[in-house]
Every structure is written in C-alpha cells, then in structure tokens.
Design a protein around this nucleic acid. Structure first.
Lengths: 343, 343
DNA sequence: GCACAAATGATTGACGTACCTCATTTTCTC
DNA sequence: GAGAAAATGAGGTACGTCAATCATTTGTGC
C-alpha cells in the first residue's frame, strides 16, 4: 500500500535501477522500447517521484530567475520584496532565486534582455512582460532549450506555457464594476477608467470584464474611454485633475493600473463629494487612500502568493511533479476601509 | 554559507550527534545545562531542521485527525471532501489523515467525543468545535499530552493554541455589510440577519463586524435582531417565508450561517423585487443561487486552503518548523454572479 | 562471426535526519 | 570512594533519489 519507489519500478519493468533512473531523468542511452516499458510501469504502479528525497539528493540547486519590467511602480517593489522573502524562507527548496529587472518597453529592448539570460544555466524563468511577438518568440526558444517558463501577473497565452501564475483579470474587472456600480447607488452619470498602456494585456482584460458588467448591470452609468496613465503617478495626477474639472457628472473612477497614488493626490484637492473610486493593488498609497476615505475599494492580488506559487510551479514543472491546481490559483481580495488586514 | 546541519550543531556545541538528536527530538536523558548548550548552538548557527530530510527519515507517519461536528451542512461536506483530497495528494507529507465526525451539540457529548481520541497515537488534531468549557479543557489536556491542536473554521482563543486556521470572521461580517449596504443603493429600510446558533463564535463575530459597518456607514438601514436558523435549511426556509410576509420594508438579508438553501427556496416563491442578499460559503445551492439571481454576493472561505493549511501547520508545530504566516492566512473571496470561478 | 557502438546492469556514495544499540563517562547517593 | 544511575559518545542503518562509474550484454554493419 506504500508509495511505489524506483526499486518497484525497476522490478515491475524488469530493468535495472540505472535504467529507471535514466528514463526518469531524461538521460540518454535508452531504447525507445525500454522507455515505454518503464513508462508503463510508472503509469500502472502510479509512481510519482518523492519530492523530498529528490530535493535531498540533488547536488546543484535549481536556478530560477524572475524577470520583471524595469518600471518602479509600488506594485513591482512589493512583488520584488515578496520574491526575496520567498527566496530566503524557502531555502529548503534548494533553489537559487534571482530577480532581474530589465527594460522591456520596446520589443527590441525586450528581445535584447531575453538574450542576456543564458539558457543553459537556467532551470526556470518567471516572467512578467507584455505580450509582444519578440517576447513570445524568446520564451518559446527558452522552452525548447529545456527551461521552464511561467508567466506571472500578466499572461502570455501564445507562448505555450503550462501554467500562468496570476489572477483572472477579466474576473477582477467584473468585480471592480460590481463594486463601483453598487456603491454608486443607482445615480446616473459617467464613469472614468484609468489604464496603463493600451497594449498591456492585464489592463485590457480588466477593462473587458469591467465593461461587460457595467453594461449588463448598470446601464445608467456611462463608461468613458480609457485614460492612459502609463503607470505613472504624475501623469495620472495631471489627467485626473483635468478630468475632475471638465466632467461634472462623474460618479465613478476605476483606476485599473498603476499610478493610483497620483489619482489620490488629485482627489485630495478636490473639494466636492468625490466619485466612487475602485483601484488595484495593495500599496502604501492605496492603503492610506482607503484609510483617508479617498478610495472605496481596492482589488488586491497577493504578491506573496504569486511569488511562492511561481517557485512551486517552476519546481514542479522541472521535476515532473504534479501541480495542485487549487493551491496555485491566485485569488483576488477586496480591501475596503473596514477590512484592511493588520500588516 | 550552506545551511547548518546537525553535524555542525554537534561540533559547535561540543557534544555528540546523539545528544543533538536527543535535544532536537525531545528525547530524555540530557542535562538541562547541555540542552541549553545545544539550544545556543541552534540559535547562533541559525539552524533549522531540513524538513525534507526529516520527512524522509521518519519511520512512522504522523497521525492527524480532523474532528468536525456531526451536522450535515453542505459546507461541512465540502470541507470533508477537501480534507480527503489533501490527504491523498499530499501523500509525500507522510501523514495519516483521518476525518472524525462526532456529536458536539451539548458539552457532555463533546467531552465524550474528545475522550475517545487516544492522545498517545495522535500527533495532531484539527478541530472545528464551539467554544465550550469542556471542549476547551479537553483541548488543553491533549496539548499537555504533546498533541498539537489547531482550531479550524471557528477559533478557540482560550485553549492556548499556537495558530488558528480560518478566516477573520469580523472582517467577513464587515465585508458582508459593505456589499449589502452598497448594493442596497441608498434606500432606507430594514435588514435581516439569519444566524445559526447564538453561541456559535463565528456567527457572533460576523454579526459584530456586520453591525459595526452598518451603523457607521449605512445609517439609513435598520438592522433587525438575529433570526436563528440553527444551520437547518428547512427551518431557515420557514422563518424566511414568514419574514417576507411580515416585513414589507425589507431591503436586505444577510445569511450569515448555514442553511442558505432554505432561504433561496423561500425566495423562489417570492414574486416581488427581492431584497439584496449576501450569504456565506460556496455550495451547490449558493452557486446556483447566484446564477439564478437569488443572491447578490457570497463570501467564501476556500475549504481546500483550510485543509492544506491545517495539515501544514500541524506538521510544522509537531516538527518544530517555522510557519509562514502569510501563506497560512485564510482569505475570504467574494463570489458574485459575474465572477463565479469555473469549477 | 568479428569489431564496434549502443544499451543495459550492477554497484556505490552522497544528501540530512530519525532512530536504534551498546559502550563509556560523568554525576549523584550513601 | 564504591556502586548505582544518569548522561553522553560512537557508530550504524534506513529513507528514496540523484549521479556517477565500470562492467556486461545486446544489436548492427561488414
């Protein structure tokens, strides 16, 4: 009734331990036919590698890189902090974890950055990057080289990766609409949406979900075209000030990307009753914004969970371990003034 | 720079491996003074046991029991399913996990139930139980016997347990109020609260948080006294029907305990525009209720996370491993018609 | 059937801890 | 200070896998 071991596999497949090892670890020098025999044993005995023993026995630690855009948003900073924390507390995972921030504004920069990663020494890459052809191609190339790749935060659906570590941004946008529309209390008026870059996939998805629910459920509210803040607080602030001046019928603002601190600054000088505001990501600014009643709700993705999940998934992919889908699903949380957690 | 091992400890403390082992595993036959020497080495070298190696080397698996009340609510059933799933997929944790459902209505029953657990063979207990003196005493007794105890779902704050695995129910209640009040769109009227047992700690906490936000933020809404549904769908249905007849000013219902399926049944026959309804826990009934537009929002605690977290925490406590607080925090999720996840 | 390569077998030593036995030293008791 | 008891040391085996070496068998082309 115990878990089968490599010994059981060897016996069942009538090969030696060495051969089982060669098959399991993809080493060369085994006939196709023998591989199949071992594979059959694996399937029929229900063998799965003992992760603990494997970890113990491995000589070289895995080398994982987190590749992040160079922007200095607060979200990125907290994500980096979470990755570093994971790297230290999960030292038992025998993984060397490195954070690389690199320019990825233009496709050329991105491709250049990706080339600097030497694929041979790299076991896994967690990448947060816009979905451009050059990035996609670089990812595919890395994957062909044996490096496991996991998109984090923003998905790269066409790069063929096994798993994405991040929230469902369409659902996040829907939730934002629901909160914003609900809190706007049935009044008619217009709703502004502040985005980052128009090509940023996660923003596009949020907007998609947002519009869907706004149309279906809150037809009295008119959603305005996206204001592009380029994830820059100063720019967002300037745009927000102008908008507050120009539009008197504004009942809601959805800050769907970075730069919410700029929006809050603009609101501080805004005397009248403010519109309902829903924003993203837990940062010092958004938390303070909630406390000071400049924001109504913040939709949060737990950066700690993202970091831990990415490492777990990369390791599982590299070592051929199963992934517990439910555990790796990144959930969104809703923070309000009333339920801000302690830390 | 590598992690220190037991050998390093032995060298540093100038004792033998055997002594280090005795100290680490709490075996008898070591002078107080020597224990301190080893402890000092542990602290100064920053030693922490390699969880993987420990798991590998252990002969007997840990024996963990989940003790749950006997009630047959849908929440309990999904919790049990999640526990069983954890037990099978995490077989590498070498833990024998057993679910025991036992009557715990009265203090006598509860005490009786707790006595049936033989403490010697039990390494850890995850317990979901009301906070009665007899339960608390039984838990303390078990803990003195060396068994690690983790309250799950409902906390037992006076039993001295190191950790609680469950959501912050005050925050959950606050969130419920926020959603309900927000969606009620500024209309005045009364809000009903359906609870389980008045002594159930989690319900009391939810109610506390709920009232707090209702008073502060939605003064136009009048919160009615709790209706006790005793977690029984039929009872809830009957009570709900009567309430819907009697109160014409009802603008919201907060279903804060089990039995929401009864409430939904009552709503199905309720012709007029229905009040805003916020409920708890993802069950077939609540999911269907959302889809069919009988519920506006459901506050969900992920039973899978609870089960996994409880096992991880019990193991960490038993083996003297650190607990990653952020990872073990159980979050609440908000499901609405628009963002129901796939499964 | 020979030479040669490819495939497979046999075996071994880590990895860090648990757990056991037996010998030896230290400490306590009277 | 003798004897008993307690404390400590020394050492080994096991867990399941990785990773390597070297020996042996099998298959292939000629």
């Amino acid at each position: 009734m115990d878990r089968p071991t490599v010994h059981d596999l060897a016996k069942y497949a009538r090969v030696s331990l060495a051969t089982v090892d060669r098959v399991l670890n993809g080493r060369p020098g085994v006939r196709e036919q023998t591989i199949e025999r071992v594979q059959k044993a694996i399937d029929e005995l229900g063998y799965s590698r003992d992760a603990n023993a494997a970890l113990l026995a491995r000589k070289k630690p895995h080398r994982f890189v987190f590749l992040l855009p160079e922007a200095r948003t607060q979200f990125l900073q907290s994500l980096i902090a979470a990755i570093n924390e994971t790297a230290t507390t999960h030292s038992s995972l025998r993984a060397d974890i490195e954070v690389v921030q690199a320019p990825m504004r233009t496709p050329e920069e991105a491709a250049q950055t990706m080339r600097t990663l030497d694929a041979d020494a790299l076991d896994g890459l967690a990448i947060m990057a816009p979905e451009t052809p050059s990035i996609r191609d670089a990812v595919i190339k890395l994957r062909n080289n044996g490096t496991k790749v996991v998109p984090i935060v923003t998905d790269l659906p066409n790069a063929g990766c096994e798993h994405f570590v991040g929230v469902n941004n369409i659902a996040a946008g829907r939730t934002a609409a629901l909160l914003l529309g609900g809190f706007a209390s049935g009044t008619a008026g217009s709703v502004a949406v502040i985005g980052g870059h128009s090509m940023s996939r996660d923003f596009v998805e949020r907007r998609l979900g947002f519009d869907e629910v706004m149309q279906q459920r809150f037809p009295k509210l008119q959603t305005l075209p996206t204001i592009e803040g380029f994830d820059d607080a100063y720019r967002v602030e300037a745009l927000a000030r102008r908008m507050l001046m120009e539009r008197s019928d504004l009942v809601g603002i959805y800050s769907a990307a970075a730069g919410t601190s700029g929006l809050i600054s603009a609101m501080r000088d805004h005397g009248k009753t403010r519109p309902v505001i829903v924003a993203h990501d837990s940062t010092a600014a958004t938390r303070q914004g909630l406390t000071d009643d400049f924001l109504d709700a913040v939709i949060v993705q737990d950066v700690g969970h993202i970091a831990r999940s990415a490492v777990r998934v990369l390791r599982a992919l590299k070592d051929g371990l199963p992934i517990t889908a439910a555990q790796e699903r990144i959930r969104i949380e809703i923070f309000t003034r009333e339920n801000l957690p302690d830390p």
